[in-house]
Design a protein around this nucleic acid. Structure first.
Length: 510
RNA sequence: GGUCUGUUCGUCUAGGGGUUAGGACACCAGAUUUUCAUUCUGGUAACACGGGUUCGAUUCCCGUACAGACUACCA
């Protein structure tokens, strides 16, 4: 097998979405598995859609996801530049080469003329409403115009494009690593513009030329490119590069969780989950879209989740580190059908990965949140809290959000518990308990529990009957981690204070 | 409309001519936790439809339906 050289080639038209990360990931996995090269090429041939900051965003997103670029924008390499706008001069010569060989031609049609043609074809109910072998002879191009007229036009300032002259009736075979052989008749392929009137190449030309020059071995990209793959094959053929054509693999699409259609920002917004790896602020509208990172997803969890959307190892193992993914990955095991995006599964992966983290690291998450709230806390205390919270959290921020009561005494109490459970017995026990605590120097989970049982027995009430109310008085909420350990973390004085406040505030329902 | 690609539990998927069609997420129930979460156990739930081929088809073939992508001087 030849050297594996794969590329991820996004265009900087906005935030990279999660499907892009998956495409990059699959490329990366293949590259790593075969000790190949992962290339990042920026396809910025559409000047009109260029979005400032998008390229930087792509770089940062890949880096956060753990997808390392070996060659390309940001790192350089032997085939630089890797930004297509900087390669502008390269493409024209290949377009010219095609013109000379009779496989491409100049076209001078205006936008209005093109519209008119499409409209006319639509009225005729033609199957093929494209600029193609069926229509090209009715248009204004170097095939229909006299030679001297063409050279006049080329010399003048009149804008023109170079179109690919697709053969009339030829079966084009695209062999795809995922879908097998796909055969399309060339009559279905239109005479795509290769060079735009602004002197920039279109995706099709730039893509083929760069993949050839950069010695790309595998083109792994989304399924939306499958329809234009025959065009690319034809391009390789007429450019004389057929033998060095890369292998193609068209990935199944990521679909909306509900209903139909491919995953979109709109759909993600509606369902309330992120679609971008990092938070993105649109430079135009200033609209902010929260990223996976900022929502608390760990990169390794997101990668694991993404890897499984359209691929599986064929075993029952689900948790895979990047290294394990590299070893297990194979193009053959990529599925054909689109995968609906299920955020629940992503959350599950996140939970699994969060749990695997050492407690010291978890404590840092909590400490970070606390810093934002201007609350001080020792690392030891933070670690203790995380240790009893870790089985109940999905995201790093949950330590703070679900554990606020460790730092802030409840001002209000869960009404449903209070109305049901707060009674004379509770008041009796807790009042006695509060006093009993005063005689203790310090409390830990064991002594707190022993004291409670002792008090309860003395008053003649089972502890089980008052636990819920007790919890509410301490945390304000109806549920939470082990109460006795919570008491220990809070410390004797704080517990007494909170009991006092609760006993004062809460009234027994009559 | 045309071209192309798909279709196994709600979701991600394994499987493959003869299987009790397997796993995971989600969901439900029980146990544990005096709460909730975790954990454990169990459960509901799928081969789109119609024809072939075959002793036998969910698996192979052909149609149909449905879905998706594409159909720009966007990528």
């Amino acid at each position: 097998m030849r050297d594996v050289r794969v590329r991820f080639a996004p265009s900087p038209t906005g935030a990279l979405h999660i499907g892009g990360i998956r495409t990059a990931l699959y490329n990366f996995l293949l590259a790593r598995q075969y000790n190949g090269t992962m290339i990042l090429r920026i396809e910025d041939t559409d000047q009109g859609r260029f979005v400032p900051g998008a390229e930087e965003y792509i770089l940062q997103s890949l880096s956060w996801a753990g997808i390392k670029i070996d060659e390309g924008v940001g790192v350089g390499g032997p085939y630089a530049p890797y930004r297509q706008s900087e390669r502008k001069d390269i493409y024209m010569q290949y377009a010219q080469q095609l013109v000379k060989a009779g496989h491409a031609y100049y076209a001078f049609d205006t936008e209005q003329e093109l519209d008119a043609m499409r409209e006319r074809l639509q009225k005729e109910k033609s199957d093929n409403q494209q600029y193609s072998s069926a229509t090209r002879m009715q248009m204004r191009n170097s095939l229909t115009l006299a030679a001297n007229e063409v050279s006049e036009l080329l010399k003048s300032n009149i804008p023109y494009v170079i179109r690919f002259k697709v053969p009339e009736n030829e079966d084009v075979r695209v062999s795809d690593l995922i879908r097998g052989e796909v055969i399309v008749n060339s009559s279905q392929v239109d005479d795509k513009v290769l060079m735009k009137s602004d002197g920039m190449p279109t995706y099709h030309l730039a893509n083929v030329v760069d993949d050839y020059l950069m010695k790309i071995s595998h083109v792994i990209r989304g399924e939306e490119w499958l329809p234009s793959a025959p065009l690319h094959v034809l391009l390789y053929q007429y450019l004389g590069w057929k033998t060095s054509m890369p292998a193609f693999a068209h990935l199944p699409l990521l679909l909306k969780p509900d209903g139909n259609g491919k995953l979109s920002k709109r759909a993600a917004d509606q369902m309330g989950f992120p679609i971008f790896p990092l938070t993105w602020t649109d430079p135009e509208s200033k609209e902010v879209a929260k990223g996976f990172r900022e929502s608390g997803y760990l990169p390794e969890a997101l990668i694991n989740f993404l890897a499984f959307l359209g691929w599986n190892p064929g075993t029952t193992q689900e948790i895979f580190s990047m290294k394990e993914l590299i070893d297990a990955f194979s193009i053959e095991r990529i599925g054909k059908a689109g995968a609906k995006f299920d955020i629940h599964k992503a959350q599950w992966f996140n939970q699994q990965y969060l749990r695997m983290k050492p407690e010291g690291e978890l404590a840092n998450y909590l400490l970070e949140s606390l810093k934002k709230e201007n609350i001080s806390c020792t690392p030891e205390k933070a670690q203790k809290i995380c240790s009893i919270m870790k089985e109940r959290v999905t995201f790093p921020q949950d330590f703070w959000e679900q554990g606020k009561f460790f730092f802030i005494a409840p001002a209000t109490f869960d009404e449903s518990v209070v109305s049901k459970k707060w009674n004379d017995d509770v008041v009796k026990v807790l009042t006695a308990y509060k006093e009993a605590l005063r005689s203790l120097a310090t409390i830990d989970a064991n002594s707190a529990k022993a004291t409670l049982e002792e008090v309860a027995t003395r008053v003649g009430i089972q502890t089980g009957k008052i636990m819920q109310a007790f919890r509410v008085s301490i945390t304000g909420g109806a549920s939470g981690p082990d109460l006795m350990v919570t008491l220990e973390i809070l410390g004797k004085d704080e517990v007494i204070d909170r009991l006092e406040y609760a006993l004062q505030t809460l009234k027994v329902k009559v």
